[in-house]
Computed example of a mutant assay.
Amino acid sequence: MKVNNRKKIFGDAVDLLMGDMEELKVPRGVEMLNISEIQPFHDHPFHLYEGERLDDMVSSVKTHGILNPVIVLKITEGYEMLSGHNRMQAAQLAGLKQIPAIVKKDLSEEEAYVYVIETNLMQRSFSDLAISEKAAVLKARYEKGSCQGKRNDILNEISKLEGKSVKVTSGQADQKLTTRDIIGKEYELSGSSVGRLLKYNDLIKPFKDMLDASVL
C-alpha cells in the first residue's frame, strides 16, 4: 500500500510539472512559464553541465519532471534566469515547453547577483569551482555585493527553497582588514589569492578557458 501511495504522489507531481493542470494547482508562489520566454542571466559566470552529468539530469527530468522551481527575474520582455540554468537546459532537451518558476521583480543588479552566485554555491562548494568561476564569484562579491543585511535575507530565502542550511555573516569586519582580506576570509583564501583571482577575471575568455583546462 505504501508503495502504491508513493507511486501516486510521484505521478501527481510529474503531471503537475509537465503541465497537466486540470485537477492540480501549481504551488502557491510558483508559476508555469514558457521556456521560450526565459533568457540566461546576462553575465552568468558558471559553466553549464555537459556529458554524463547533463545526460543524467535530462533522464531525471523525463522521469520526474522539474521538482524544484527555478528563480527568474521579470524584465521588460520576458524573464531572465537567476537560478536554474542547468534545469532549464535539461528541460529543453527533455522536450518540456514550460517550467515551474518563482518570479522576482524589481531586483537591483546587486541583489540579482546574490541569487545567481549563492544558489550555485549551494550546489557546489567554492573549492569545486573552475578557476574562472572562482574568479567571477570573487569579482561579484568584491564589486557587486549588496549590503550584508539584504544578502543574508536572500541567503535565508534560497536556503529554504533548496532545503539546505547556509552560513550567514554579521557584516561586522575587522577594520584592520582590507576588502580582499575580508572576502578571502569568507572563502578561506588569503588576500593575495583573492587579488590574483580578481585579475584572472579580467582575462579574455580564451585565456580563462585555458586556465580552467590547466593549460597555463
Rank of each mutant, 00 (worst) to 15 (best):
K2I: 12
K2F: 15
N5F: 13
K7A: 09
K8V: 07
K8Q: 09
F10H: 06
D12Q: 13
V14Q: 07
D15G: 05
D15E: 11
D15Q: 12
V26Q: 13
G29K: 09
V30W: 01
I35S: 10
S36R: 14
P40N: 06
H42E: 12
D43T: 08
P45K: 01
P45G: 00
P45N: 08
Y49H: 15
Y49I: 12
E52K: 12
E52Y: 11
R53C: 03
L54Q: 08
L54C: 08
D56P: 04
V58Y: 01
K62A: 06
K62S: 08
N68Q: 15
V70A: 07
E80V: 07
G84K: 02
N86Q: 03
R87L: 03
A91K: 04
I99Y: 09
I102G: 10
V103Y: 10
K104M: 10
S108T: 14
E109V: 14
E110I: 10
V114E: 03
I117F: 02
E118Y: 09
T119H: 01
L121T: 03
L121K: 09
M122E: 02
R124F: 07
F126M: 13
D128T: 12
A130Q: 06
S132C: 09
K134C: 00
L138T: 00
K139E: 03
Y142Q: 03
G145T: 01
C147W: 06
N152F: 00
E162G: 08
E162F: 14
V166C: 05
T169V: 14
G171L: 00
Q172H: 05
Q172S: 11
Q175F: 02
K176E: 09
T178C: 08
T179K: 15
I182T: 05
Y187N: 02
S192T: 04
S193W: 06
S193P: 15
L197V: 05
K199G: 11
I204M: 11
I204F: 04
D209H: 09
L211R: 05
D212F: 04
